[in-house]
Design a protein around this nucleic acid. Structure first.
Lengths: 184, 184
DNA sequence: AGGTGGCGTTCTGTTTACGGAACGTTCTGT
DNA sequence: ACAGAACGTTCCGTAAACAGAACGCCACCT
């Protein structure tokens, strides 16, 4: 049930869908046909270059051959249940001398509450809600933001994310100083 | 030109986002730290197993590290609201029954002023400034927003975008009622 | 100060993914 | 029947990806 079995299987499927022989794909991609044979059989652990050469020759994106695991846990580790209450994917990162801003596409699962530990000093977060109603920020004085609304809070203290009434989608901004100090 | 440079760069970004040291990530993923160091430097051609071990330890999907979607989608993304002074690329669109929200990556050229005509009724816009200082909104009472700050204005009247002191980068939200009949 | 422990890089020996050659098989055509 | 050619698999020498050790650096101890 290896990852390489999976990738090999997909590779073979893709090739056969295009009515290409193993030899022909090897020729077009520049990959040795022995390599390709063992790869499709899941008996090899391909390098990125090899995968890229093959998917390109198959006119497919790399993702066509990788088991797409579209889950990303936000703020994993730390305390508490880092479950699937909040998922976030980085879509942009801005760096300028004094600070860095990360822009995430975020989803808060319906009915869930997640508390996040403090980040480094002078970190702040902002949320633009796209759909749903979010309750976020300081646990003592949380803010509520609905579709099209905006919230801003300090993130150098513990803070929470929750979606009491239904799934929330939004864009989250995390802004923190550029200095590289570590906290305990 | 390397695919491996790109992957290495993303890997490092992801790791730093999570405030993990190289050594710590190596420990958690079971990947040798020498390997990880050279990988982040683009001096290696990682195998699938290695990539998977790393992205799993980073709680990210494999695709987060493959130049496939995340950032190239922006460059490829076509639809823009472009004038002389303002360039914008759509990065996300949310549709829910009452309204649609478009999320743009926006740049306002230094020293420029652009006025936009009124959009349809009940349209509003919000801007999160990432770098620079923007002056935006109602021409009679424009708002100023610096890095990390936020502005919101009605867009069903003429409104302006300007960057008096230097290039401005940000994320622009345009929210408008859903086209067509009002359905409950 | 010396010591301790973290960091990221470079070095080293082992393992293995690679391209290509050699192989057995099957399917043409003459 | 026998080429001839294509197929996919297995073999082989080489290049390189790997884990881990050794290194130099810096911060914080006692």
């Amino acid at each position: 049930m290896g990852l390489n079995d999976e990738v090999g299987r997909r590779l073979r499927e893709l090739r056969q869908q295009q009515r290409l022989s193993l030899s022909e794909l090897a020729r077009r991609s520049g990959v040795g046909k022995g390599t390709l044979s063992e790869l499709e059989g899941g008996r090899r652990n391909p390098t990125l270059d090899t995968l890229y050469a093959l998917t390109t020759a198959l006119d497919s994106p790399l993702s066509a051959v990788l088991s797409d695991h579209p889950r990303h846990a936000f703020e994993a580790g730390g305390e508490g249940v880092s479950g699937d209450a909040v998922t976030a994917v980085l879509i942009e990162r801005f760096e300028e001398p004094p600070a860095v801003t990360d822009v995430f596409r975020i989803r808060i699962a319906a009915g869930s509450v997640q508390e996040s530990a403090a980040h480094i000093a002078d970190t702040s977060e902002s949320l633009m809600v796209l759909t749903g109603t979010a309750v976020v920020g300081d646990p003592a004085q949380p803010q509520t933001a609905g579709p099209g609304e905006y919230a801003h809070w300090r993130a150098d203290t513990p803070h929470l994310y929750s979606a009491p009434t239904g799934d929330v989608h939004g864009i989250l901004f995390v802004r923190y100083p550029r200095a590289g100090a570590h906290r305990a």
